[in-house]
Amino acid sequence: MNLTDRQRKLVFAGLVVVLAVVGVYLTVAAPDDDTEGGAAPTPTATAGPTGPASPPPGISGTVSAGSFDVYRLLPFSQQEFATAADLAQRFTAAYGTYRFDEDPKVYGDRLAPMVTAALLAELRRGEASPGKIDLRRQQQVVAEGSATLDRVRDIEDNSLIFLVTLKQQVTKGGKKGQESQQYAVTVSRDGGSLRVYAFAPADEGQAGDTG
């Protein structure tokens, strides 16, 4: 259909009005960058253990005793497993090593690199107990600990629980003796490292996964 000059001008003007209305609508409907009382919140990382970088690779071929690699089915690599086991053993030995004339803070500082912040706070409270300090001083207790790894109790996506036996050479009231206790030691991923997450006598049981 042929339009006259006047008709073409009217159509053009109408299009301009329609586009202006659409622009206003989009501007009003768009979400504001700010929320009430300040800028829009941004997501923050949640503290705590992180999962494995990728799922276990699995095994697609035929399984044979000579070539079976169990670590292909586990959420921890062989290196992580060995690191966690070493940590559980070292921590248990350090936990059982103390002396009556040592500042409880020094004892806690030795354990600090091996444990989570929450467990460290719990251990520090226990060592700073006036009753425990007084008894050790009265009996002049000196204990030197060593530890043996007994077995793996549980494996979860983010944690490993080891049963570890603490053996102590204890001097108490001038007399020497030996003491032994088995513990369940949970080692978990803590950011980019492995740390002892929980620690309790083995017969009390222990929660497994931490993530």
Rank of each mutant, 00 (worst) to 15 (best):
R110C: 11
G192E: 12
V63M: 11
L135T: 14
D86A: 11
F162Q: 03
L135P: 01
T148L: 12
P56N: 02
T92R: 05
V11G: 09
Q138C: 00
L87E: 00
A143H: 12
P31R: 12
V142H: 05
A30P: 07
Q89K: 07
G192P: 10
Q7R: 04
A143D: 15
P49K: 04
I155D: 02
R6D: 14
A65Q: 03
A200N: 12
P43W: 06
G96E: 07
G145F: 04
Q89C: 02
Q169I: 05
A29V: 08
I59C: 05
L73R: 03
L149T: 09
Y71R: 02
Q169D: 14
R195Q: 15
R124N: 12
P41M: 05
D103N: 12
L160R: 14
G61K: 05
Q139L: 15
S146N: 03
A128F: 15
G61H: 03
V164S: 03
T83F: 06
R151C: 08
S64T: 10
R99V: 12
G208Y: 08
L120Q: 09
G126K: 04
V21A: 11
A207S: 01
G174A: 14
D209V: 06
A45I: 11
P113M: 00
R153C: 05
K172F: 01
G191K: 14
I161Q: 02
S159N: 01
L26R: 13
Y71E: 03
N158A: 05
K167S: 05
E102G: 02
G14A: 13
E179Q: 11
Q206W: 06
T186V: 10
A184H: 15
L26W: 08
F100D: 02
E204H: 06
T165E: 09
V24D: 00
N2E: 13
P57A: 01
R137P: 04
S64D: 12
L135R: 12
A82P: 07
I59D: 01
L15H: 08
Q140W: 01
R72S: 10
V63P: 06
S67C: 02
A45R: 06
K176W: 00
D32I: 11
L119I: 11
R189S: 05
A117M: 06
R72C: 07
V196L: 08
F81G: 10
S180L: 07
R124E: 13
D32V: 07
D190W: 11
L87S: 01
V152Y: 10
R99N: 14
Q168V: 03
A198N: 13
A20E: 07
T148Y: 09
A45E: 14
G58Q: 08
D203P: 01
F12W: 13
V185N: 04
P49N: 08
G66Y: 03
R72V: 01
E80F: 00
V142T: 06
S60V: 02
R110T: 09
V187N: 07
